[in-house]
Amino acid sequence: MDIKDIKTLIKMVTDTDITEFEMENSEEKISIKRGSAPQIVHYQAPQQIAMPQVAPLQVAPSQPVQVAEGGAPAASAAVPDKGKAVVSPIVGTFYRAPAPDAAPYVEVGKIVEKGEVFCIVEAMKLMNEIEAEYRCKILEICKENAQPVEFGDTLFLVEPL
């Protein structure tokens, strides 16, 4: 087969929608393929992921109070002398005031009535007001403004009235 015949076969393949052409005789074999080889795409369906079992929250026993010389208990930030802890009910960011330029909701020494707002904990762009569950006096503010807090972190120490 000469080059003219091969060109004619190639033109025939390109002018039609034939993608593969083979011709064989006793003397020669011609194979013409058009386009790229088909790609095989493998797709695997997503597998369900088993969530690990989480043990219920266990509170560690409180640390023993260290006794300084003279028999008086040593000062410890972890063990409050008196008062009750107001803890964060969610994970988020602690804010003492409703706006950056506004006055804080509470200060040390302030008497807070039941239902009055202590602070805001922002979680996923939602502002969650933390309210007093009973009448109390603020003894200590345990977190700084705009500080991240975890579930159960102590925000305030209060004295129930």
Rank of each mutant, 00 (worst) to 15 (best):
V59N: 07
E28H: 04
V106E: 13
K29C: 08
K29G: 05
E131N: 09
A123Y: 03
A132V: 05
A55D: 13
S31I: 01
A74T: 01
V67S: 11
F94S: 03
K125C: 12
S88E: 09
I120P: 11
A55C: 05
A75H: 15
N128M: 08
Q48H: 07
E131Q: 09
F156N: 08
A85M: 09
L161V: 06
Q47W: 02
K110M: 15
E116F: 04
A146D: 13
I18M: 06
V59S: 07
Y134G: 13
F21W: 07
S62T: 04
N128S: 07
K33V: 02
P100N: 02
A123E: 14
T154R: 06
E131M: 09
P61W: 07
A55Y: 03
P100T: 05
E159T: 03
P46S: 07
Q44H: 06
I90A: 11
I138F: 07
P100V: 02
A102F: 09
R135L: 11
K33E: 10
Q47Y: 05
A123L: 10
D5Y: 04
L155A: 07
Q66H: 11
M127C: 08
V86T: 05
P98T: 02
N25K: 06
V86L: 12
Y43F: 13
L9N: 01
A77D: 14
G152V: 03
P56D: 15
P104C: 03
